[in-house]
Each structure stands twice: as C-alpha cells, then as structure tokens.
Computed example of a mutant assay.
Amino acid sequence: MKRILVTGVNGQLGQELSGILPTIGEVIGVGRAELDLTQPEAIRQVINEVKPDVVVNSAAYTAVDKAESEPELANAINAIAPGIIAEECEKLAIPLIHVSTDYVFDGSKGSPYQDTDPTDPLNVYGKTKLAGEIAIQNSCQNYLILRTAWVYGVGGKGNFVKTMLRLGKDRPEIRVVADQIGSPTYTLDLANAITQLITLYQPEIAGIYSYTNSGIASWYDFAVAIFEEAKILGWDLQIQRVIPITTPEYPTPARRPAYSVLAGEKIAKVLGTFAPHWRQGLRKMLTELYAQ
C-alpha cells in the first residue's frame, strides 16, 4: 500500500481526501497543529519522518482579500512551502500533487483557459500561488499541479454555499455579483480526481492540469442554484430574491478575474472522463449537508 502524506488535512478538500484516500493507501494527514508551513525545517522533518510514496499538498493560504494585507504570510504558505515540499519529494524520487488556482489568470481571455496560456494574476493570492507553481517546477520532476476554482464542500470552516445558506435563513433578498464567471467545484469530485491521479501516476503525465466541475456560472447563477436546490431538499429559508450586481457595486480589497473558466480536456484524457456538471456536484453536497 502507498503511504500518502496529505497537508491541509483539516481544510474542506483535506477532509474529503482523508475520507477517500484510505481506499488506495495509508494516509498520514497533517494540519496546522502538526505542521507549520511557514517553517521550512519543519516541512523537511515531517516529510523525512513519514517517508511517503506520494505527497498531496492541499494546504494553502486561501483568504483572498486578507492576503492583500498579509502578503508575507501568504507567500510563505503558497510560494515558499510548496518549493520546499517539492525539493524533498525530488530527494525521495516521489510524486507531488499540488492544488493551485484559477486566480493565476487575469480573466481577460473570455474563453476557457488552457494550461499553457500565459499567467497574469491580479491579486496577492494569485501571485503567491503562481510563485508556488514555479517553485515546484524548478525543484522537482514528478509533479502534478492541479488548478481548480470556486471550491466548496461539506467540511471546512466556510465557503460560498454555506455563506449563502446562512444569509438566506433570515434575509428576504441578497445581492450577488453577476459579472464574474467560473466553474463551481465540489470538493468530493476534486478529491476523487486526485485519488484517481495517484493510482494512474506515471512520470510521463507530470505537468500542469486544470480540474473543475463542468459547466460555467456567475456567482449570481451559483447563488440562485443553491437556493433552488436547498428549497427542493426542504431547507427553511426566508430568501425570496437574488439581485444581480456588478463587481464595482461590491468592492473588495483583492481584484478578481472576470472570467476564469478552466479548460478540462487535458485532464479528461488522463482520467478517461469529463468532470460532473457543477449543478450535479452542488446537489450532492447540499444533500449531504442537509442530512447532517
């Protein structure tokens, strides 16, 4: 059985991975309490003690707006740490699967981004994640960088779906940005893809890939779908109306790409199938959340 080291084990993706990966190997999960990613020597020590057959780095500094005022911390976790993990993986001659983001792009292309398209992040979070990708490429040969987007799941502290449900409980209307377009991605579908990639991995498939759920939506479309699906399940919500607004009407510290849809053909060839549609993922997530 493979020994699989998973970082960020308490995050929403990390929790999904902890549930699925035991089907293919022995999982050693580390969260902030076990591994401080701002400490390079701690990273080296953990990897050398565990001696894994593969590392999945699902840890990240993901507070996009907060990163604007904490660039050094975001850089330590998103850029420096992945490079160190990659160096240790290279020494052990093992693969690294690293989760990255659609925010490495500026959103000006207007059609789905290929993995080979030029990057140009608009914010500190995107810049630090891109720096992490580059550090990995410079430090090891056996890597899969998996760019994803608009991630949500049952686990973790909070995400867009949970926020909408919380607000929808006691508000009759909510204003949601309608001019940012992407692909909502369910953590369980992403975790299943990562599990499959571990079993399939060969050095010849190393490189950068994109994995999101299929289909596209604005945040407004996503919010409308959340409430439609939640009401079908029987959620007690006060929400009557979702009002579409523009990005300038909802200013945030970090700029976000207007269009960050990622092309899924390359990863589909490796996995043998396209990702499920985002609405399907949403339905599954809400069904699980409602049952809790």
Results as ranks from 00 to 15, higher is better:
residue 266 K to M: 07
residue 228 E to N: 11
residue 245 I to R: 00
residue 231 K to E: 09
residue 251 P to E: 12
residue 253 P to D: 08
residue 195 T to C: 15
residue 229 E to V: 02
residue 183 S to N: 10
residue 257 P to K: 02
residue 268 A to F: 11
residue 221 D to S: 07
residue 250 Y to K: 11
residue 196 Q to Y: 12
residue 227 F to W: 04
residue 225 A to I: 12
residue 272 G to S: 12
residue 268 A to Q: 14
residue 215 G to Q: 03
residue 220 Y to D: 09
residue 217 A to Q: 04
residue 187 T to E: 09
residue 194 I to G: 01
residue 219 W to A: 01
residue 194 I to F: 06
residue 232 I to N: 08
residue 218 S to Y: 04
residue 254 A to W: 04
residue 246 T to K: 14
residue 259 Y to Q: 01
residue 209 Y to S: 02
residue 233 L to N: 04
residue 193 A to F: 11
residue 199 T to H: 02
residue 190 L to A: 11
residue 247 T to W: 02
residue 241 R to S: 08
residue 230 A to T: 01
residue 224 V to M: 07
residue 187 T to P: 00
residue 248 P to M: 00
residue 222 F to Y: 13
residue 228 E to R: 09
residue 226 I to L: 07
residue 203 P to G: 05
residue 264 G to N: 15
residue 236 D to V: 08
residue 220 Y to M: 02
residue 262 L to M: 05
residue 216 I to Q: 10
residue 266 K to W: 08
residue 278 W to V: 10
residue 241 R to H: 07
residue 201 Y to A: 01
residue 269 K to Y: 12
residue 243 I to H: 08
residue 196 Q to H: 14
residue 183 S to K: 08
residue 267 I to Q: 08
residue 276 P to G: 14
residue 205 I to G: 09
residue 256 R to T: 02
residue 221 D to F: 00
residue 241 R to A: 01
residue 269 K to I: 06
residue 255 R to N: 13
residue 248 P to C: 01
residue 221 D to H: 02
residue 231 K to N: 00
residue 235 W to T: 01
residue 211 Y to K: 01
residue 273 T to L: 13
residue 211 Y to S: 04
residue 272 G to L: 14
residue 188 L to I: 08
residue 225 A to D: 02
residue 201 Y to T: 07
residue 219 W to P: 01
residue 268 A to L: 06
residue 280 Q to C: 15
residue 245 I to P: 03
residue 232 I to T: 13
residue 185 T to L: 11
residue 187 T to I: 02
residue 218 S to C: 08
residue 228 E to Q: 11
residue 200 L to F: 02
residue 227 F to S: 01
residue 201 Y to N: 04
residue 265 E to W: 12
residue 210 S to Y: 05
residue 189 D to R: 02
residue 209 Y to D: 05
residue 211 Y to L: 04
residue 276 P to R: 13
residue 260 S to L: 13
residue 220 Y to P: 00
residue 216 I to L: 09
residue 269 K to A: 15
residue 193 A to N: 10
residue 236 D to T: 07
